[in-house]
């Protein structure tokens, strides 16, 4: 059971690092938001990996609830960021056209 937890947790950390790299390196807004979502998914994945207690014992519900809350928070933040990006794009278009 420990190896599975470690394996999946390590994958989560790799996602975190990948997302962080992409966030720091890529400049367009959409790629930054995707990067953020992947970093978030990585951390949530670590939580779920910790909660897994083998096929026999039932998993730990607390991290599950945390991840559920985290997902909704992440999606609301993404929605706001996307709309801010859209508003910024419109404002830039106005400036170009003026």
């Amino acid at each position: 059971m420990l190896t599975a937890q470690f394996l999946y947790g390590a994958a989560g950390l790799m996602l975190f690092v990948l997302g962080l790299w992409s966030f720091l390196v890529h400049e367009p807004l959409l790629r930054k938001i995707i990067a953020l979502n992947i970093t978030g998914a990585g951390v949530f994945h670590v939580f779920i990996a910790i909660a897994y207690r083998g096929d026999t014992a039932p998993p730990d519900p607390v991290p599950h609830a945390l991840v559920l809350t985290g997902i909704v928070v992440a999606v609301s933040a993404t929605a706001l960021a996307l709309m801010l990006g859209a508003r910024l794009q419109d404002a830039e278009e106005e400036d170009q056209s003026r």
Binding site: S76, A77, A79, L84
Partner: peptide, 12 residues
């Protein structure tokens, strides 16, 4: 967390 969702929407 529901308040967060509402805040994001009000921001939009």
């Amino acid at each position: 967390e529901l308040a967060v969702l509402l805040a994001a929407l009000l921001g939009i």
